[in-house]
């Protein structure tokens, strides 16, 4: 069994957990004076600043689209549309692939070896002994809505044959309106297997590691307003961050307390400009 396939296999189980946090719903929060903004993807140091990204500071609707993200091993998509306006914002991502087909960079596989070794042996044993066994018995009960949809035989086949996109979806949409948000996802697939999404609460964090925080349908309010994000991964206390589809809604602009700036009086001088 190839390590590349195993990396996808292990990640699949992580995604199983994460997928239970997906939600179609809304929560409310308080809004504060701030512009509305929306962006498709942010990865610290990679897609940084986020792309595509629009901000409406004056209430006029701003929109942008992007057909391709900068080359990176974590995220791929075919189209991203972001819109921000007066108290509303939305993001639509089409054909999203997380850890796309083609596997991981060799350096990553090498770095992951200590972690993958026990996974490799475990999966090898599982698939060798009884590929048809029910996975749900091995996973926490709250994952039943997902695990009962998956075929362990198919997962073993995938592990043997190579890794399709770890997690993919035909369409991911987040939107906010004032202080409420929505999140929708169409045709979510784990390693090529389509699964249905249950509807757990927003902001269900995935307890993977003390240094890692993964949240699906993250919703929060801060000084910038109310924000909803399809997926947010924070590492090393926020030093590294991955955000997929983020929409932030401010409220109507409050006029700043600063005095009005003066009208300028032209001075007589000489500065050759570019003409």
């Amino acid at each position: 069994m190839k390590r590349r396939a195993l990396a996808g296999m292990g990640a699949t189980v992580g995604s199983l957990t994460a997928a239970t946090a997906l939600l179609i719903g809304a929560v409310s929060g308080h809004a504060s004076p701030s512009p509305s903004e929306a962006y498709g993807a942010f990865i610290t140091g990679v897609i940084d600043p986020p792309q595509p990204h629009v901000q409406s500071t004056d209430g006029t609707e701003q929109s942008d689209t992007l057909a391709e993200l900068p080359d990176n091993p974590l995220l791929d998509l075919r189209a991203a549309t972001v819109t921000a306006g007066d108290g509303h914002a939305s993001v639509e991502l089409a054909n999203v692939e997380i850890v796309p087909s083609g596997g991981l960079p060799p350096e990553l596989e090498e770095a992951l070896q200590p972690l993958l070794d026990p996974v490799e042996s475990g999966v090898t044993q599982l698939c060798a002994e009884d590929p048809t066994q029910d996975l749900s018995g091995e996973l926490p009960g709250e994952l039943d809505p997902l695990t009962e949809q998956l075929s362990s035989q198919q997962l073993c086949d995938v592990a043997e044959g190579g890794t399709p996109a770890l997690l993919s979806a035909d369409l991911i949409t987040v939107a906010c309106e004032g202080d409420s948000g929505t999140f929708e996802i169409a045709n979510l697939r784990l390693l090529g297997q389509e699964i249905e999404i249950p509807g757990p609460d927003a902001n269900t964090e995935i307890p993977l590691d003390p240094l890692v925080n993964i949240t699906f349908n993250k919703q929060f309010s801060d000084d910038d307003g109310f924000t909803t994000q399809a997926m947010a991964v924070e590492l090393a206390e926020g030093e590294f961050e991955v955000v997929l589809a983020s929409a932030t809604c401010g409220t109507a602009q409050d006029e700043p307390e600063e005095p009005m700036a003066p009208k300028p009086t032209p001075v007589e001088t000489q500065l050759p400009v570019t003409g």
């Binding site: 960079p105 999966v123 890692v212 590492l235």
Partner: peptide, 25 residues
């Protein structure tokens, strides 16, 4: 085994991120 596997996605992201951060230093 499975609980260990549940962390792989996160570790992928960590390592990829660190690599990119180092690469873009």
């Amino acid at each position: 085994m499975l609980s260990a596997a549940a962390g792989v996605l996160a570790v992928l992201v960590v390592l990829a991120g660190l690599m990119w951060m180092i690469g873009s230093s």
